[in-house]
Amino acid sequence: MPNSAEDKKKVLTRIRRIAGQVEALERALGSDVPCVAMLQQIAAIRGAANGLMAEMMEIHMKDILLTDEPSLKDRAQCTDDISGFIRSYLK
């Protein structure tokens, strides 16, 4: 979880934006919205999720690596975490 109030606010804003996009997609499914418009909305949701992932990885690295003196163990764990996230995300 982000440590700073500013980071939490940024992440929450992104999450709410994604939720709004998903709700709009759900409403579109119940109406006569063309498939192309729905595909565009799905692409926008995917882009927003990508942005959220990048933001969270940046926050995680900053919170761990930019502390006063992160231990070698903490830096290694952060590297492993981020590598794992990237691997699973790119599948």
Rank of each mutant, 00 (worst) to 15 (best):
E6Q: 10
G51V: 00
V22F: 02
S83A: 15
A44M: 03
A49I: 15
M56I: 06
C35Q: 12
M38T: 00
A37E: 15
T67D: 09
A19N: 13
L72D: 14
K62E: 12
M38G: 03
M56G: 01
E58N: 13
R46D: 08
L12V: 08
Q40T: 05
D74N: 13
R17S: 09
A43E: 12
Q40P: 01
T67S: 12
I64Y: 02
K73V: 14
A44I: 03
R27G: 08
S71L: 03
A28Y: 04
H60L: 05
Q41L: 03
E58S: 13
I59G: 03
E6S: 11
P2V: 05
E6R: 09
L52I: 05
D63C: 00
R14N: 04
R87W: 12
E23P: 01
G51N: 01
I15G: 07
M61C: 09
R75P: 04
R46Y: 01
G51H: 04
I64R: 09
S71F: 06
D7F: 02
F85P: 07
Q40K: 13
K91M: 10
M61N: 08
A49Y: 11
K73I: 08
C78P: 00
L29K: 11
I82M: 03
G51F: 07
S31P: 07
R46Q: 11
V11M: 07
L52M: 04
V11P: 00
N3D: 12
L52A: 03
H60A: 05
T13M: 13
R14D: 06
V11H: 05
R75S: 01
S31A: 14
A19Q: 15
N50T: 15
I86H: 00
A44D: 06
E23I: 08
T79A: 15
K62H: 11
A28K: 04
Q77L: 14
R87E: 12
A48G: 08
I59C: 00
P34R: 06
E69H: 06
D74C: 07
T13V: 15
Q21P: 02
Q40G: 11
V33D: 06
A44Y: 05
A48S: 01
E26Q: 10
I82C: 01
R87F: 14
S71D: 04
K9D: 07
Y89H: 12
I82H: 05
D7W: 01
K62N: 11
P2I: 02
S31F: 14
C78K: 06
P2Y: 00
S83N: 14
I42T: 08
D32K: 09
Y89Q: 09
N50A: 15
L66H: 15
A28C: 09
Q40D: 13
Q77S: 13
E55C: 08
I64H: 09
K62Q: 09
